[in-house]
Design a protein around this nucleic acid. Structure first.
Length: 484
RNA sequence: UGCCGCAUAGCUCAGUCGGUAGAGCAGCUGACUGUUAAUCAGCGGGUCGUAGGUUCGAGUCCUACUGCGGCAGCCA
């Protein structure tokens, strides 16, 4: 292998993932030779010495590289600009200054990839989230998105760990569905009927034509879509494996332009046989506490950053949720409290209407002061599959409300009685024939069962304090935006 | 999709009553004995989102469009 021009190097580089990461180096005792790979955050020069902040994403903290004057040529030193990729060799030494315990006193460096400072879009000073979204391919090199990405990774691990340690099986429900009965929102079509002309240079000039307008000619012989929920499928697996969950991508073609919606997002949906609404609430409470607790334990520096720069109440609310017993009350009781609150609501409260975000936040933040689980919602504002209560008016639905954002989880006990479920489907005018297999689950060996769903990105927003959902997923897909 | 707001240097923004464009940061040049988003001095940098309109004159006023953001709805 030929090294790039301008290189100074000593011994052979360790081009293997088993080398020490910056995280490893920062946790090492001083003394001994070391090498460090990463991207330059900043460089500070004085006459006798230069400092380079080097980050490889393995942790929030940068490794400080100390370059004494003369270690490398001036023209090479100048190429150590923000964004440049570099390998240093040196000695890991105790740092005489505050800010870090060890630092790398460099003896050699290899410039792996320059980043022209005149055009490199990231700078050492902060950029707005809006700007960073335009450079989604580079944004992960900054503090904020590195931290978001590590928290997201750890949270995903914690989700699996939570369920796996309790004997739940991860079910890979389909991404493509030909059921037109999911009913959770507008769907993206999946088709091979498009006849598009040879790609042109100008995307705007390319056009679509349909080879056929008959769904029977399409790949699946009928209309197919990207899934909007794995719940119906995973219920089938709960009726055989007992405790199961989904964790995968989900798609909604809604034209929603808000900081809380994505067209492509990840959803977590546990489903348990032999479990009623009480057991469902118990699982939800344990789940929220354990995932938060895991991230608090394992992403300390990242959360400290969010607490300092993004959301000052972050650590307080997260610790509070972990330490609190969740308050449980009925929807009807909550409506009573809201109507007697004396608050001047932007949206009026009445029994039978859905609670607005302002109502949910008042309950959990002001009235109760800790997470709240509401149950027994009016059946008309909830989905058809929820278990009906004997009162004929409410269903065994539950929503988990937490301080700072409101609803985090929505779930229910499912209707397991065939006749009741069929009647409800008829009542709502839904296409009963399409639900044939879902009804079979009640026809053969039906079991009481419950589950819930939560959007993974909303959980990440809660864990990080980030205000826009587009900033907690690597490449956000929203109406009119599918770049990268 | 509806309502509201914004669009000026690479980034973040200022620009008064309509009168020929400004700062900080970044960049470049130099200084500085260990810095922590280093500091100090100097230099370069603009089709004011696009297209029309009003006006002697438009960054500024009007219209449309595009993009972005916020709120709402839909929801996770």
């Amino acid at each position: 292998m030929t090294l790039p021009a301008g290189t100074t190097t000593g011994k052979l580089a360790t081009m293997d993932y088993r080398r020490r990461s910056i995280r490893d180096l920062l946790g090492s005792e001083p003394g001994g030779g070391a090498e460090a790979y990463g991207w330059v955050k900043t460089r500070r020069d004085s006459k006798e010495v230069s400092f380079v902040q080097l980050n490889d994403g393995s942790c929030f903290q940068d490794l400080q590289i100390v370059l004494e004057a003369g270690t490398v040529a001036d023209d090479l030193l100048k190429k150590l600009s923000t964004g440049a990729c570099v390998r240093f060799e040196g000695i890991l030494v105790e740092s005489p200054a505050a800010g870090q315990t060890v630092e790398l006193k460099a003896t050699a460096l290899e410039l792996l990839g320059e980043a022209d400072p005149a055009t490199y879009p990231l700078q050492k000073k902060g950029a707005t989230m809006e700007f960073l979204r335009e450079i989604a391919h580079l944004k992960v090199r900054g503090n904020t998105f590195g931290a978001v990405t590590r928290v997201r990774n750890r949270a995903a691990w914690a989700v699996h760990s939570f369920f796996q340690s309790r004997g739940f099986s991860w079910i890979h429900t389909p991404i493509i569905t030909a059921s037109d009965c999911e009913g959770a929102g507008a769907m993206f079509a999946v088709t091979t009927l498009l006849d598009h002309e040879s790609p042109t240079q100008d995307e705007a000039e390319s056009t679509f034509r349909l080879k056929s307008t008959d769904p029977g000619d399409d790949f699946f012989g009928k209309p197919a879509y990207l899934t909007v929920s794995g719940q119906l499928n995973v219920e089938s697996y709960a009726m055989g494996l007992t405790n199961v969950y989904t964790f995968g991508p989900t798609f909604r073609a809604e034209n929603s332009n808000t900081p809380r919606h994505l067209a492509e997002f990840w959803m977590i949906e546990p489903e348990m046989a032999f479990c009623d609404i009480e057991g469902d609430m118990n699982l939800a409470e344990e789940f929220v506490k354990e995932v938060i607790s895991d991230v608090l334990d394992n992403c300390g520096p990242d959360l400290d950053f969010f607490n300092q720069r993004i959301e000052p109440e972050l650590l307080t609310t997260l610790r509070h949720v972990v330490d609190s017993g969740f308050e449980r009350m009925t929807y009807s009781h909550a409506v009573d409290l809201l109507m007697k609150s004396g608050e001047n609501w932007e949206f009026p409260v009445s029994w039978g209407s859905d609670l607005q975000s302002e109502h949910e936040r008042w309950l959990t933040e002001k009235k109760i002061g800790k997470p709240v689980i509401l149950i027994d919602y009016p059946k008309d504002i909830k989905a058809f599959y929820m278990k009906q209560n004997p009162d004929g008016k409410t269903v065994r639905a539950m929503d988990v409300l937490v301080p700072r954002i409101g609803e985090l989880i929505g779930g229910s006990q499912r209707e397991d009685d065939l006749a009741t479920l069929e009647a409800r489907i008829d009542e709502l005018g839904l296409p009963k024939a399409a639900y044939w297999w879902y009804l079979d689950l009640r026809r053969y060996g039906s079991a009481p069962h419950s589950g819930f769903g939560l959007g993974f990105e909303r959980l990440i927003m809660y864990l990080t304090g980030m205000k826009n959902i587009r900033d907690v997923i690597p490449f956000p897909r929203t109406p009119g935006q599918a770049e990268f």
